[in-house]
Computed example of a mutant assay.
Amino acid sequence: MQTPLQSRILEQLRLQLSDEARSGDRLNEAEIAEQLGVSRTPIRRVLQQLQDEGVLAFEPRRGFVVKDPSALTKKMANTVEELLDERVMRDMAIGLLNTVVSERALMQRYSVPNGVLMSTLRRLMRDRLVEPSPGRGWIFADVSPRAMADSYRFRQILEPAAILSDRFVIDRPTLQSLDEDHEDAILRLYELDRPRLFDLDARFHRTVAQGAQTGELVNAIERQNNIRRVTEYIGFVRIERVRQSMMEHRKIIAALLDDDRQIAASLMQIHLQVSMKETFVYMEDDLESLRGGKVRLMPELSPESHNDHVTLE
């Protein structure tokens, strides 16, 4: 199993090799270790993994050389853009992309070609997390801790009120299906990755908002979901909170199915208050860990990782 350090090294080497490597190029362990500021041991293990993937070969007296750059391209075809999405969102979350940034600066920062960068920026534009500036740069959304706190306060006002609105419609089939998905997720909590857990969470809040039959309200909740999606890459809530949160969702759904909107609104208010409190308990420590490179992007959940963090409400 890779360590977080090896995962970061592998990510960086794949990006560099995909952009620069030619068949026959020699890789110098000592130079790579010095460049990345690590010892040669994790470098060697990562190079061995690339050898197993067919990207590199080991030659006596030469060491590791590039064997088949196309193998790297194939391997990365479905992952490089996802990795870039994660890296950009991480940097947004820790405050490194809070000004207007040019495309050239972004390409240099992440060592990716323009096509890969633009794919990520288009996805972020779709989620209204970035927009082009009047010049030639890009403006990133504010996802700082202060923005997160404002988001929670806004939702504490909006979501319970949506449930009590006079046009609210209880869509029983949709709510029942959503409840079944929650039940399944609770049973398979350690089998599901973070994006799937977050998507279920976002779907719950979107479904409740849709009941109010007001487009602007749904758009507002989608916007808040997108802001939270960025912080997913840090994870401010412990895994046990994830389980509890989904149980709270089920209680709200049950109240709606009982046509008791007063209870559902009260439960939603309490749910958001608890979620906000739990989010900020570990936020500063998690941000510091991420800044220091101690947190791996998108770690998988497992029964052995009870202290992993996941953003979920």
Rank of each mutant, 00 (worst) to 15 (best):
S165T: 07
R206D: 13
I163R: 05
A212W: 04
R167D: 14
A212Q: 08
R228L: 12
T207K: 09
I234A: 10
E216N: 12
V237M: 15
Q213I: 03
F168P: 04
E180R: 12
I170M: 04
Y233V: 13
V242E: 11
E180C: 00
A185R: 08
I221F: 09
I234D: 05
V230W: 01
E183F: 02
R228N: 11
E216Y: 13
R238Y: 03
R228E: 12
A212F: 06
F236I: 02
R196C: 01
Q176D: 08
D179T: 03
L197E: 01
V242I: 14
L175E: 06
S165L: 03
R228Q: 13
Y190L: 04
L192S: 07
L189P: 00
V230S: 00
L175T: 10
T231M: 06
N225L: 02
I221H: 06
D179N: 09
F168E: 08
L197F: 03
F236E: 02
N225Q: 13
R206F: 07
D199M: 11
I221E: 13
R238P: 04
V218E: 10
L175G: 06
D199V: 00
L178S: 08
F204P: 10
V230H: 01
R196P: 03
R243T: 03
N225I: 04
D193P: 03
V208L: 15
I186H: 00
N225H: 07
V230M: 05
A202T: 10
R196W: 01
R223H: 14
T207Y: 09
R241Q: 11
I234H: 03
I186E: 08
R167Y: 00
R223T: 12
F198W: 15
E180Y: 02
E222K: 12
N225T: 05
I234P: 04
T231C: 01
T207A: 14
Q176E: 15
S165K: 01
S165N: 05
R238W: 01
N219C: 08
G211F: 11
R206Q: 15
R229V: 02
T231A: 04
E232V: 13
L192W: 08
S165V: 03
F204E: 13
V230P: 02
R229Y: 14
S165Q: 03
Y190A: 10
I186L: 13
N225K: 03
S165M: 05
F236Q: 06
V230I: 12
N219T: 11
A202N: 10
I239Y: 07
R172L: 10
Y233T: 11
E183P: 06
R229H: 13
I227H: 05
R238H: 10
F236P: 01
R203S: 15
G211M: 10
F236R: 00
E232L: 15
D166G: 04
V208W: 05
T214E: 15
R228V: 00
N219H: 13
S177A: 14
R223C: 01
E240W: 11
I239E: 06
Y190M: 08
L189W: 09
T174I: 08
D184V: 02
A212D: 07
T231N: 14
F236G: 01
I239D: 00
Q210Y: 07
G215T: 13
H182C: 15
R194K: 14
Q224C: 10
Q224E: 15
F236N: 06
R194V: 13
R203V: 10
R223K: 13
